[in-house]
C-alpha cells in the first residue's frame, strides 16, 4: 500500500533553536494518527511543513505521491486542514465563508454546505457574522471547512481547543464516523490524550523537535495502563518530566 503522506528527514529549525529535526513519518489510507507532545515540542511546525505553510531546511514531504514543494496543487487536492488557531475573515458569515471554500472543490453544492454546518452544530448561527462567534464556534467552523470537501486526509491541529463538552463529543463522533464510513484518514495534534486514545490507531510522540516514539495504540495499550501512562513514561525517559510526575 502506498503512503498518503511520507516525510523524509524533515527538518526545520528556528533561530531560538526550536523546530523539528529528521522527521520520518508515513501515513497510510485509513490511519488516524495522533501527534502528542508538550507545548513547543514542534507539532504545529510539523503540520505547517506538511501543508507547505513553511518551508523545510532539509527533507521532503509527499502527499498522495506528489511532492509538496513541486506539485503542491496536486498534493493538496485531497487534503482538508485546520492549522493553529481558527482565524477567519470576520466580516463574513459562516455560510459565506464555506461558499468561498466550496469553490475550490468541484461538486460541492449548497446542500453539502448546509450539511457541514449542521454536522458541527452551526446551522442556527450560519447567517451570523463570524466576528460574533465564540472561540468554540470558530473552531467548529474551521472543522466544518476542513471536512466539507470530504478529503482523503484531514490535518487537524488542536481541534478541540475552546470546544465545550458537547462540542468535544460531537468532534469525537464525527471523526469516528468519517474514519469508519468514509475511510478518511486523519492527523490530529492534541493535548486531549483520552480523545486520541479513543480515536487514533497510531500515535507519535514529539519531544524537543524529535519524533521519539511511534506506535500502534492497540499494541501500546496491551503493555500500558493507558495512552496517558505511556506518554508520561516516554516524557520521563526523555527527561521532560520529573520522576515524581
Amino acid at each position: 500500500m502506498k503512503p498518503i503522506l511520507e516525510t523524509v528527514q524533515l527538518t526545520k529549525m528556528y533561530r531560538n533553536d526550536r523546530g523539528i529535526r529528521d522527521f520520518h513519518v508515513q501515513l497510510y489510507p485509513g490511519d488516524v494518527y495522533g501527534l502528542l507532545g508538550p507545548n513547543g515540542a514542534g507539532k504545529t511546525t510539523f503540520l505547517k511543513l506538511i501543508t507547505g505553510l513553511i518551508r523545510p531546511d532539509k527533507g521532503t514531504v509527499a502527499l498522495f505521491g506528489a511532492s509538496i514543494a513541486e506539485q503542491f496543487e496536486q498534493g493538496m487536492r485531497h487534503v482538508g486542514c485546520m492549522i493553529e488557531s481558527a482565524d477567519f475573515h470576520d466580516f463574513l458569515t459562516a455560510r459565506q465563508y464555506l461558499q468561498l471554500v466550496a469553490r475550490y472543490y468541484p461538486g460541492i453544492g449548497n446542500s453539502r454546505i448546509e450539511e457541514a454546518l449542521d454536522v458541527v452544530g452551526l446551522a442556527k448561527a450560519k447567517s451570523d457574522k463570524i466576528k460574533h462567534y465564540s472561540t468554540g464556534m470558530k473552531q467548529k467552523l474551521a472543522l466544518a471547512a476542513a471536512i466539507m470537501p470530504e478529503p482523503k486526509l484531514a490535518i487537524l491541529d488542536e481541534p478541540t481547543n475552546g470546544l465545550d463538552i458537547e462540542g468535544t463529543v460531537m468532534f469525537r463522533k464525527l471523526i469516528k464516523r468519517l474514519s469508519e464510513q468514509k475511510g478518511m484518514s486523519f492527523i490530529i495534534s492534541s493535548h486531549m490524550i483520552h480523545e486520541l486514545e479513543q480515536l487514533c490507531n497510531r500515535v507519535g510522540i514529539v519531544v524537543r523537535g524529535r519524533l521519539i516514539k511511534e506506535g500502534c495504540v492497540s499494541e501500546l495499550l496491551q503493555s500500558n495502563q493507558s495512552l496517558e501512562q505511556y506518554y508520561i513514561d516516554q516524557l520521563r525517559l526523555a527527561g521532560e518530566v520529573s520522576e515524581s510526575a
Binding site: 493538496m76 487536492r77 487534503v79 493553529e84 482565524d87 477567519f88 475573515h89 470576520d90
Partner: peptide, 17 residues
C-alpha cells in the same frame, strides 16, 4: 496581521496562483 492568509494557502492552489 489577521492570520487569514493561511486560509488561501491551504487550498489546492500553488503560491503563484
Amino acid at each position: 496581521a489577521s492570520r487569514t492568509l493561511k486560509l488561501a494557502l491551504l487550498r489546492p492552489n500553488s503560491r503563484f496562483q
